[in-house]
């Protein structure tokens, strides 16, 4: 009797619940699946990157809910809850993979850019170094060329000056009563009037011809130089006549040189009368020194 009652009770329960009522284990698994799905589906990365996986989790969860509501078999509720929980976690994992892959792409791009920038910086530095070296080399070359040119110029000048001095000295020795001295204005040859002119006159004596030949020859050898011919007198007589006499004598010397083929424009003849005495006019010796023609060989 007791046994048959039990059996009939069981039969009633089975008939009412279809297969069975929801077991605590099925209830627990269903709750776990709901929580897992809720957590995962709220993640925007999952919505964006794992929509397919999320949808399949949703399908399983809805199936589990439907079975639970309709009193389906606990094992099928558990089964679908289990699938929903696994698929939810798979959806989350898929989204995380996409996230990490995106991060890798960014990191790779960063590294590539960093390397590129480093290479570009290195190349720019190398270029700058090369340009600097090239500029330094050019500057050194220019300086060397300049120094070489200056040296050559200096040598030329010094050779020319030496040659000129030698020739002037030769002129001095060849011409009696000619004194040569080097000044700021150049070489000055001083010729006494007695050598060149008769007293009071401006006609060159025949004895002066050789001296003028030598001077003309010298000027022909140095076409780069020009001359100032300056006549002076002593202080005896009127200043005006002395002035005119000194001018006529300077011009006579100039004419003699142009007559020997020297270009007129290279020679500037002037008279200074008794100005600029080189000695005292109080003695005959002094006056003799003051009566003179100075030929200034201007520096080139």
């Amino acid at each position: 009797m007791k046994t048959s009652l039990k059996l009939s009770l069981m039969a009633a329960v089975l008939a009412a619940g279809g297969c069975a009522t929801l077991s605590p284990e099925a209830e627990r698994q269903l709750e776990e699946a709901r929580a897992s799905y809720r957590f995962v589906s709220e993640d925007p990365r999952v919505q964006r990157y794992a929509a397919v996986e999320l949808a399949s989790a949703s399908t399983a969860l809805r199936e589990a809910e439907r079975l639970a509501a309709e009193g389906g078999s606990p094992e099928l509720v558990e089964h679908n809850a289990y699938l929903a929980e696994r698929r939810s976690r798979t959806a989350l994992g898929t989204a995380q993979i996409r996230q990490v892959e995106a991060d890798i792409a960014v990191a790779r791009e960063d590294r590539r850019r960093t390397q590129l920038e480093a290479r570009e910086r290195e190349a720019a530095a190398a270029r700058a170094r090369a340009e600097q070296a090239e500029a330094a080399r050019r500057e050194a070359e220019q300086r060397a060329q300049l120094l070489a040119r200056e040296r050559v110029e200096k040598e030329k000048v010094s050779v020319a000056a030496t040659e000129l001095a030698a020739e002037v000295k030769r002129l001095e020795t060849e011409l009696a009563d000619v004194r040569a001295k080097q000044t700021d204005r150049g070489w000055i040859l001083t010729l006494k009037n007695e050598l060149l002119f008769d007293s009071g006159g401006a006609t060159l004596k025949s004895g002066a011809q050789r001296a003028l030949d030598n001077l003309a020859q010298f000027l022909r050898k140095h076409p780069e130089r020009d001359l100032a011919i300056e006549g002076f007198t002593d202080s005896i007589g009127s200043p005006d006549s002395n002035q005119r006499l000194s001018e006529r004598r300077a011009h006579a010397v100039k004419d003699a040189l142009t007559g020997r083929g020297i270009e007129s424009w290279r020679i500037h003849a002037r008279g200074y009368g008794p100005s600029f005495p080189v000695a005292s006019n109080a003695t005959e010796t002094g006056r003799q020194l003051n009566r003179r023609v100075e030929i200034v060989i201007n520096p080139s």
């Binding site: 089964h79 289990y82 699938l83 696994r86 976690r89 798979t90």
Partner: peptide, 10 residues
Amino acid sequence: AQQAEADAKL
């Protein structure tokens, strides 16, 4: 089979 697939995929 369905659970094995879900487990393997996870």
